[in-house]
Amino acid sequence: MNKTLKYRWHILGLIFVTLSTVPIWGSDYVLFFCLLFFLYASMAQMWNLLVGYSGLLSLGQQAFVGFGGYTMAVLTNYYGVYVWLSVLIGGLFSVLLALFMSLFIFRMKGIFFGIGTWVFAEILLLWFSNWKYVKYGTGLFVKPATPPSMSTIYYAALIMGVGTLITVFVILRSKIGLGLMAMRDDEEVSEAMGVEIFRSKLFCFLVAALITGTTAGVLYVFQIFIQPYKAFAIDWTIVLVFIVVIGGIGTIEGPIVGAFIYVLLSQWLAEYGHVSLLILGIIAITIMLVAPKGIMGTLQEKTGFTILPSRRT
C-alpha cells in the first residue's frame, strides 16, 4: 500500500498525460467514450458533494443541466456569443437559479429538500416546454458561428472532468470540507456550528450548480440538440444516483469509478433501449443491499486504500 502511495502522483500524472493525448492516438470510439466519461464524472462529483458530503439530497440536478444548456444554446443561437463564453455564462446563470431556489428550499431538510429541488426542475420543464422564445417542446439546435472541432470539445470536457476533481479535492480539504465532514460524523458538532454549516452547504450548492450548468453546456455543444423533456428530465438525477451509488457515496474516487462503469454499461445496453434503465435500476438496488458503500467505499473499508484521501492525515 505504501508503494502505491509513494507513486501516487506519478501514476496520476501518467493517466493525465494519456487522457490529454486521446485526440492524437485514440479512435473516435475512445474519444467519445472518454468525453462522456469526463462529463458524467464531473456532474456525479457534484451530486456526491451535495449528497455524500453536505447532506443535501438533491433530486433536481436536472434543473441546472437544462438551465445551463438552454442558456448556452440561446446565447449562441440568438445573440451570437462565442460558444465557450456562453457555456461559462450558462454556468453562472445556473448559480443565479440556485440562489433563487435556495430562498425556498434551504428551509427544508432531507427528503423535503429533495422534492423541493425536483419540483423546481418540473416547473422549469413546464415553463420551457410552454415558452415560445425557446420554441416550446420542439427544442433548439445549437448553431455556433464557427462550430468547434471534436478535439476542442474533448478538451473542454477534459477540463471539466479534471477541474471538477481538483475543485472537490480542494473544497473537501479546506475548512469548509472539514466542517462538513465533522457534521457528517457527528450531528452534535453540526448543531454547535449551525450558521457556519449553513454557509458551507449553500456554498456547495452554488458550486454544484455552477459546475453542473457548465458541464451541461459542454455536453450540449457536443450533442448539438437540446429539448426540454430531455434536458429537465429526472433521468439526469437517476443517472447521477446510479453512478454515485455504484462507485461509492461519500468518496472522491466513487463518482469516477461509477461514471466509468455507467458509460461502459450504457454503451453496451444502448441497443436495448429502456431495458438498459431497468438493468441499471436493478444493479443500483442490488449494490445498495449488498454493498451500501459502493465499490470504492467497500474497498476503502476493507483495505484502507484511497487514491485521493479527502481527509488530511
Binding site: L59, I111, V241, L278, L280, G281, I282, I285
Partner: peptide, 11 residues
C-alpha cells in the same frame, strides 16, 4: 432507503 425506493421507481 430513499435511493432503494428511487431505484424501484426506475425499475
Amino acid at each position: 432507503p430513499l435511493l432503494v425506493a428511487f431505484g424501484l421507481s426506475i425499475i
